[in-house]
Each structure stands twice: as C-alpha cells, then as structure tokens.
Amino acid sequence: MPLTFTLDPSVSPDLRDGILDLWTEVTNEGGAVGFVAPATREEIRPELVRHFVAMAEGRARLLVGHDEDGRVAATAFLTLNTHRLMTHWLWLYTVMVHPRHQGRGYGRDLLAAAEDAARGMNGIEAVRLTCRGGLGLERFYASCGYKEVGRVPGAIRVAPGDERDDVIMLLPLT
C-alpha cells in the first residue's frame, strides 16, 4: 500500500515519537541523516527540536508519510532560505524512509510529494539538498530529477579516517 503524505501536520507527542523512532532506526540501519550508528533517541531529540522550532517560526515545513498502520514511515523538512538573495529556492532536509519500507518506491513517492509541496509555495523555483557521498545517494536523487551541482571532497567526517564528500543536488521547478 502507498504511504499517505501530510504537509504541515499538527505536532503531537505521537508524531514527535514516531519521527524520533524513524530517525533512530534509519540512522542505526546506516542511513545518512545527520548521525552515525549507533545513535539513540536522546542524541537525535535536540536536532528534531531544532526542526520543530524552525516550523514554529515559519522557516520550515514538515512532510510526513504514514504507512497503512498509521505509523510514521517517511519524512522530509522543507526549509526556507532566510538570505534575501536566495528566497527563490528551499532546502530539503532529513529525507528518510523507514528501513522496513525501503525498496517499495516510497523514497520516490516522498520526493514527488516534496516537489509538489515546493511547487505549491509562492516564489519557490528550485529545491536543493545535500547528501553524503559513498552511499550511491546521488544516483538515487538523480533518478528523481535532481542534478549534481557541486561536491565538497571530504567535508563529512563519519569517523576518523573516513571522510565522505558532501554532494550538492538541485531540482529546478521552472
């Protein structure tokens, strides 16, 4: 069954806990979502709070996908630029699909829903994201229409002696 996506859901304790569980499980299965395994909910919680603050201040929007059982299965945060010369594009952060749902096309569905959300926002002409090199993520994003527009070699230190490229991807909407 496909996921059900909601843009700007009400933040409840169940949603908060669902995102924390998702983020922890994705990280601990090797996902490149800002942490390195092993990670705990307590380590991830402050970053989620930062996202929620940005939402409360109107700087970010949450796209969440629920599975057929109503569990949080996917997320992406659409974050507006605050720099006056860059307000025509937004950032896509914390793009993740629960490991139990991977391989079903839900990642593509999530990106399509994020693109639709961005197209519905006044003045947004492109979506930008970064991804960790060495995992093939740039090939996945390219297959969804994103173009690699830059790369910073060794910018992400996963562990001592294990540096990965920070790959910059862009999806033009016009």
Rank of each mutant, 00 (worst) to 15 (best):
R100I: 12
Q102I: 13
Q102L: 14
Q102Y: 04
G103T: 12
R104L: 14
R104S: 15
G105Y: 01
G107K: 00
R108T: 15
R108F: 08
R108S: 14
R108Y: 13
D109A: 15
D109S: 08
L110Q: 10
L110F: 02
L111A: 08
A112F: 08
A113V: 12
A114H: 01
A114W: 00
E115C: 06
E115M: 06
D116T: 14
D116V: 13
A117M: 02
A117Q: 02
A117Y: 04
A118K: 00
G120A: 11
M121Q: 12
E125V: 04
E125H: 14
A126Q: 02
L129C: 07
T130Q: 04
T130N: 01
G134E: 03
L135Q: 10
G136R: 00
E138I: 02
E138D: 06
E138W: 04
F140W: 05
F140E: 09
Y141T: 11
Y141L: 07
S143V: 06
S143A: 13
C144F: 06
C144R: 13
C144M: 05
G145F: 03
G145T: 09
Y146M: 05
Y146L: 00
K147H: 11
E148G: 02
V149W: 02
V149F: 12
V149Y: 04
G150I: 07
R151C: 09
P153C: 01
P153D: 07
P153F: 09
G154E: 13
A155G: 05
A155V: 09
I156M: 01
R157A: 13
A159Q: 04
G161P: 00
D162T: 08
D162S: 12
E163R: 12
R164A: 09
R164D: 03
D165P: 03
D166F: 05
D166S: 05
D166G: 03
